[in-house]
Nucleic acid binder design. Structure first.
Lengths: 153, 153
DNA sequence: CGGAATCCGCTTTGATACTG
DNA sequence: CAGTATCAAAGCGGATTCCG
């Protein structure tokens, strides 16, 4: 697991900006604590974690069930994703020592609280979907689109 | 701008799982609307957007100011990030036609609402930081660490 | 100053094959 | 069934250079 064990440092170099925040108290997170916040945000932003969390919030699922649900996912990425979530204490893995191996995954209480929080973000997306779509359309419209209209060649 | 203009499709292939959700009403987002949700999530999870949004939530900033604040960022990624945010209607760009070019960026009302939502996620991270850290430590402890202890060679 | 274009490398992801 | 290991492809981020 080349990317699961040793995570990329991403940014983490910030020692805090010299920006004039005033009291800087409610805003101290934006650059300084980048490292820790980033860990979770990376997980949220990655390709599959969110889907896995959402699915597991519904009920316990086996490896194959998860794979079939998400379907677009490769077994490799499902494994990697589950390992990361397990490592972060968001998912619990249960192995049954039976002849055909049976492994089940379920969200931990911690994982459930995260899912709740994530849903707020998803809700935002739902609510403002049309605004974002409109903004994109407007932006694309006023964008010259390199080499398409005025270009005679 | 090779990755800014044409975003990667990521997943977007799901037409909805055959998973038994029951009513499936409160859960319809988890796989089906993947595409749209993913767009925002990718933005949240990427390397710099969050920092830019946080900074701009404080006040209007010029390109160079932003660059100096974040500092670890390259001018390229700052440009790319700002363009994406602008396209999504989260940031507004104002150009002043003066001799030394002056461009200012500020959060739109839409951008501010997103920032508010994001903060909830950041708060979660703050609150559960120790739990996550503990989980990771425990996980790493019970992980055999391939070829380190029992391996005599 | 603000930004676009190019090149280049590292990280992440996917496909495939093999194993307990 | 549930992984692990390896390989190749693609993505994303960074450095540099040139332009308005």
């Amino acid at each position: 697991m080349e990317e699961g064990t040793s995570k990329s440092p991403t940014h983490c170099g910030g020692t805090g900006p010299s920006f004039d925040y005033g009291d800087a108290d409610p805003f101290q997170w934006d650059t300084r604590e980048d490292c820790e916040v980033r860990q979770i945000l990376d997980r949220i932003g990655d390709k599959w974690s969110l889907l896995v969390i959402a699915l597991l919030d519904l009920r316990r699922l086996r490896f194959t069930e998860l794979r079939r649900e998400i379907d677009g996912i490769s077994q490799r990425m499902l494994t990697v994703t589950l390992r990361q979530l397990e490592r972060d204490g968001l998912v619990e893995r249960t192995v049954y020592a039976v002849v055909p191996p049976r492994v089940e995954y379920e969200l931990t209480p911690l994982g459930r609280t995260l899912h709740t929080t994530i849903r707020a973000l998803v809700s935002w997306t739902e609510e403002h979907r049309s605004e974002v779509a409109a903004a994109r359309q407007a932006y694309d419209a006023r964008t010259p689109a390199p080499g398409s209209l005025s270009a005679s060649a």
